[in-house]
Amino acid sequence: MITRILIGGEGGQGVQAIAKVLIHAAHASGKHVAHLPNFGVEQRGGVSLAFVQIGDEEISYPKFREADVAVLLSHRSVERSKMHIGTNTKIIFDNSIIGQKELLGFRTEKIAIPASHLAKEKLIPRVFNMIVLGALTEEIGGIKEKELKKATLNYFNDKIKKKHELKHFNLAALEMGEKTIKGLRK
């Protein structure tokens, strides 16, 4: 089985960082993985999409038609992701950025995570994407917590060296995302 994940947001939100940490954690957890960033000429200011696949079998083609999970983090990413959202696609979205109304067209399961709001209020704004990642990994399952933490610290290693408190904030963000999803299930 292969889980197909589409992550959409604005350039600069850390969409590709979510994808990169996710595939490294999944790989270390014994899964096959692939990630393709959707890139344009702009360095920032564009819509950023990440195609991620995690599975028990080898993956060779980096794109797919329908996502099993779509993570939507900005208004514009909703439009750009539309063609990859089907009736079986589970949508995880940041409801402190995207309103419920924007997603009315999708008749599918939706999970609201106020990641941006939580990051600003309880941690620091820049770890918003790691809250999303914590929620996403909890939702898809199969990724070892230890590997997720390791992959996160590895990815932000250079930044953490310069600013030690980032270690705490990133790990706390992962945990916050995971707890938020678990809380919604109760």
């Binding site: 990169k20 595939i23 790989h27 096959h32 993985v33 692939a34 990630h35 393709l36 960033p37 890139f39 080898e58 993956i59 060779s60 980096p62 794109k63």
Partner: peptide, 10 residues
């Protein structure tokens, strides 16, 4: 191609 260049995998 661009997909092959930019994609990450095993």
């Amino acid at each position: 191609d661009g997909y092959l260049s930019k994609m990450t995998g095993e």
